[in-house]
Amino acid sequence: MKDDKSDKTPNWKSDFPIEKKKATHVSRREFAKYLGLFSGALAVGNGAIVIKSLFFPEENLKGEHFVCNEADVPVGEMFQFNIEGSATVPYILIHLEDNKWRSFEQKCTHLACAVRYRADINQIECPCHKGYFNADTGDVIQGPPPRALPQLTVVRKEGKIFVKASEKEQTV
């Protein structure tokens, strides 16, 4: 005759005879080991960032780079572009009133959200946290951004728009 206990116990329990309490228990030694490994991994990652910034600094933008034709961007509009051969930093070109042209990095200085030009208020807006920048200078008007947007110098030649590193950026 069969045992009553064997009828109530599933077959898989005999194949895996580990009690639940033992399986979920983590000893102090195991916890300290994983905490040490995790802390070490963070330290190595931070060290790699420091080494990269010290031995491989970012190069400043050199020369003039073609962006578009003047006719491609109407007054009050924004044009997004990337510069070939440089890091993957997006830029914006803004055609302001009085035929003024401005170019800035498209990454907000707060948390690197993409900024956009709003012609209705004549300001550059970061929609993530409602930060606003002056469209003429890139200076912070309102919100959490800690500093102005990095700016490029716009050069107009024969109906074409070029950008180059601003004089402020070259002296740094």
Rank of each mutant, 00 (worst) to 15 (best):
D98R: 15
E70Y: 05
V89C: 05
L93Y: 06
S86I: 13
V75A: 12
E64D: 10
N69R: 08
S86G: 11
Y91T: 11
I92L: 15
A71V: 09
H65K: 00
E97T: 14
Q80F: 08
I83L: 12
V67F: 08
I92Q: 05
A87D: 15
F79L: 12
V89N: 08
F81K: 04
A71R: 08
E64Y: 04
A87Q: 14
M78P: 03
F66K: 00
I83N: 00
I83M: 05
D98S: 14
E64G: 02
E97H: 14
I92F: 13
V75Y: 05
Y91C: 12
S86N: 11
N69D: 11
L93E: 02
D98K: 15
G63R: 04
V75R: 07
P74F: 10
G76R: 00
E77A: 12
C68W: 00
I83S: 00
A71F: 06
A71W: 02
L96F: 02
E70Q: 04
M78E: 15
H65N: 04
C68E: 01
E84H: 01
V89G: 01
H65V: 10
E64W: 02
P90H: 01
Q80R: 15
F81L: 09
P90C: 03
I94F: 07
H65E: 07
N69P: 00
G85T: 03
N82V: 02
M78Y: 07
V67I: 14
Q80A: 12
P74L: 05
E77N: 13
A87E: 14
P90A: 01
K62Q: 13
N82L: 08
V75M: 10
Q80P: 13
N69E: 12
G76K: 01
T88P: 15
K62Y: 11
V73W: 11
G76F: 05
N82E: 11
G85Q: 03
Y91S: 11
A71D: 08
G85L: 07
D98Y: 10
T88K: 15
F79S: 08
F66P: 01
I94Q: 05
L93C: 11
K62E: 14
S86V: 14
L93N: 02
F66E: 01
G63D: 03
T88C: 10
S86H: 10
I83V: 15
L96A: 09
D98N: 15
G63W: 04
G63K: 04
I94E: 08
S86T: 15
E84I: 01
F66W: 03
N82H: 09
F81G: 01
E97K: 15
N82K: 07
C68I: 10
P90N: 03
E97D: 14
E77I: 03
A87S: 14
G85H: 05
G63I: 02
L96N: 10
G76C: 03
F66C: 04
N69M: 04
K62M: 09
I83C: 06
E77P: 03
C68T: 13
V75D: 03
L96H: 06
K62W: 07
G76M: 06
E97L: 10
I92Y: 14
N82W: 01
I94S: 06
